[in-house]
Amino acid sequence: MSSDYDAELEKLLNKKLKQIINESKRMQEKHEEKELVAHLTSETFDDFIRSHKIAVVDFWAEWCAPCIILAPIIEELARDYPQVGFGKLNSDENPDIASRYGVMSLPTVIFFKDGEPVDEVLGAVPREELEVRLKQLIE
């Protein structure tokens, strides 16, 4: 019986297809994770805080260990409060913005309403401490 069907080839193609789907899923997840907390710069900062009724910006630096501790808390909040704009700004790379808001220690989280700073929290604090301030602003 003649047939074009090749079981081995089909197995290989299926394997390749699965690999492509998994890779694409992974890229999508990474992309979504990146977008959850916007990486701000001096160029994008002003537009960001003006374009969100409420925005929360995490001022951080790579060498700052408490900043790394705090990062997943900010990501969690960003996931749970999609109506709020969450961003992070590297203070070393954007010192003009950090000095505009008097950021002297890291991490500093500043809460903005209608583009104006209304509250801030210093240090790596538990989620609850940030959330209670966020809820006050939303209500």
Binding site: E62, W63, C64, A65, I68, I69, L70, A71, P72, I73, A124, P126, R127
Partner: peptide
């Protein structure tokens, strides 16, 4: 990873974090 310190609360590591030289 520091990113799991809040979630997992490793007591001794957190004590070291507060009492020794630290970095990233």
């Amino acid at each position: 990873s520091y990113t799991s310190f809040m979630k997992c609360n490793p007591r001794f590591l957190l004590a070291l974090f507060s009492s020794t030289f630290r970095g990233v």
